[in-house]
Amino acid sequence: MVAAEGRPAPARILLLEDSALDAELITAFLGDVAPTPEVRRVSLREDYAAALEGGEVDLILADFSLPDFDGLAALDMARELAPHLPFIFVSGVLGEEVAIESFRRGATDYILKQRLIRLPAAVERALAEAREKAERLRAERQKEVLVRELSHRVKNTMAMVMSLVRRTLVRGQPAEDYVANLLQRLGAMADAHALLFETNWSETDLLEVVRRTMQPYLRTGIGQIPPRTGPGQRPGPSSEWRRIEIKGGTLISLSPKPALALSMVFNELATNAVKHGALAHEGGRVVIDWQEEANEPDHVRIVWQEINGPAVERPQREGFGTTLIKRSVEYELQGSVQLLYRPTGFVCEIVIPRMIEA
């Protein structure tokens, strides 16, 4: 237990003792423990059980001979109701057989009342061991949580990879095209995971997701993405912009699940634009923008707009890329998506909640 100032808080000791004189003497010796413990004295079984169930106890000191039950019964009760608490017998007489039996049942130590000078050191040692044990248990539980979370994420990732492998294959498609398309999608997934690992699998900025996804196209000279000018601010005009323009002016934080889903969506949109859309033609441009939804402040509208590209028509057959976009938005992001085939160019409008469960 730690006090507000960062110093160790006083230990809360439950003293099971029927003799007021002995209790006073024990409390006096406990004054040598730093910081001085808070001592609560009980003598009856009912009061003792209530104190254990209350939970605000760090250590138990117990006499062996008590009015309505004995020390071993008190030890058994402590092991049942509060098994993590150190338990020290403080008794006038404790035979060897009883001492061995008490250790077998889980007692931490025993101190004879004739030698109370040993009490402060025994209490400090027991409290230190209890803190170390609690820390080990916390570390083990944290490790279990991390292992379960890792297993969950690996299973989800493998399921997505298997889906990409199956759905990327189109009957009659040349093997070279299949391999290229599959590697493109797997690369986008890998880039998204790399970004999430860089942020320790915590929240990341939507702008960074767009940057990372569009980076392969920037390296080919198709476009330039300027840095954000300040927290939550829209990037200013830049002569370096060429064919990909990022206009998102709202700082949007994403948890891992939506970050990964949006990365896959942007990759599909970019791939299609390079092969068949605006980026396949000289002078064609792509504008990516996002803002808070006017009618729903807790939602974000993301718009992918292609300009000066070829004339577009709604395809007669929905390909896997379109299916992936729709499923990612509707199922992974709990949002809605519109694919608009306008004479001026293809447009994808996505509306998603700002807060999405990871």
Score class of each variant (00 low, 15 high):
residue 3 A to H: 15
residue 3 A to T: 02
residue 11 A to G: 13
residue 15 L to R: 00
residue 15 L to Y: 05
residue 19 S to H: 05
residue 22 D to K: 01
residue 25 L to M: 11
residue 26 I to A: 12
residue 29 F to Y: 15
residue 32 D to W: 06
residue 33 V to H: 08
residue 37 P to K: 01
residue 38 E to S: 09
residue 40 R to A: 11
residue 40 R to H: 11
residue 44 L to S: 14
residue 44 L to N: 05
residue 50 A to G: 08
residue 57 V to M: 08
residue 58 D to W: 01
residue 60 I to W: 04
residue 60 I to R: 00
residue 61 L to M: 10
residue 65 S to C: 14
residue 66 L to R: 01
residue 70 D to M: 05
residue 71 G to A: 04
residue 73 A to N: 03
residue 79 R to W: 03
residue 83 P to S: 08
residue 84 H to D: 14
residue 90 V to T: 04
residue 95 G to H: 07
residue 97 E to C: 07
residue 100 I to R: 12
residue 101 E to T: 12
residue 102 S to F: 07
residue 103 F to C: 13
residue 103 F to W: 09
residue 108 T to A: 14
residue 113 K to S: 13
residue 114 Q to F: 08
residue 116 L to K: 08
residue 125 R to V: 05
residue 126 A to L: 00
residue 130 A to L: 00
residue 130 A to P: 02
residue 137 L to P: 04
residue 140 E to F: 15
residue 143 K to T: 15
residue 146 L to D: 15
residue 147 V to G: 13
residue 150 L to N: 11
residue 157 T to F: 10
residue 158 M to G: 10
residue 160 M to E: 12
residue 161 V to D: 00
residue 161 V to L: 14
residue 163 S to Q: 14
residue 163 S to K: 13
residue 164 L to N: 13
residue 166 R to A: 15
residue 169 L to V: 08
residue 172 G to E: 03
residue 174 P to C: 06
residue 175 A to C: 07
residue 178 Y to R: 00
residue 178 Y to M: 01
residue 179 V to S: 12
residue 180 A to T: 09
residue 181 N to V: 01
residue 185 R to K: 14
residue 185 R to W: 06
residue 188 A to M: 00
residue 196 L to V: 02
residue 203 E to S: 11
residue 206 L to A: 14
residue 206 L to P: 02
residue 212 R to C: 07
residue 217 Y to C: 09
residue 218 L to W: 03
residue 230 G to F: 03
residue 230 G to C: 09
residue 234 R to L: 10
residue 237 P to S: 13
residue 238 S to E: 04
residue 244 I to T: 07
residue 245 E to L: 15
residue 247 K to M: 14
residue 248 G to D: 04
residue 250 T to Y: 15
residue 252 I to R: 00
residue 253 S to C: 05
residue 256 P to M: 04
residue 257 K to W: 05
residue 265 V to D: 07
residue 266 F to G: 03
residue 267 N to L: 02
residue 268 E to D: 12
residue 268 E to V: 00
residue 274 V to Y: 06
residue 278 A to Q: 02
residue 288 I to F: 15
residue 289 D to T: 08
residue 289 D to N: 14
residue 290 W to H: 12
residue 297 P to L: 07
residue 297 P to E: 09
residue 300 V to Y: 02
residue 307 I to C: 07
residue 308 N to C: 08
residue 308 N to Y: 08
residue 309 G to Y: 00
residue 311 A to R: 05
residue 318 E to N: 04
residue 321 G to Q: 01
residue 326 K to R: 15
residue 328 S to N: 05
residue 328 S to K: 03
residue 330 E to R: 07
residue 337 V to Q: 06
residue 339 L to G: 12
residue 339 L to P: 05
residue 356 I to S: 09
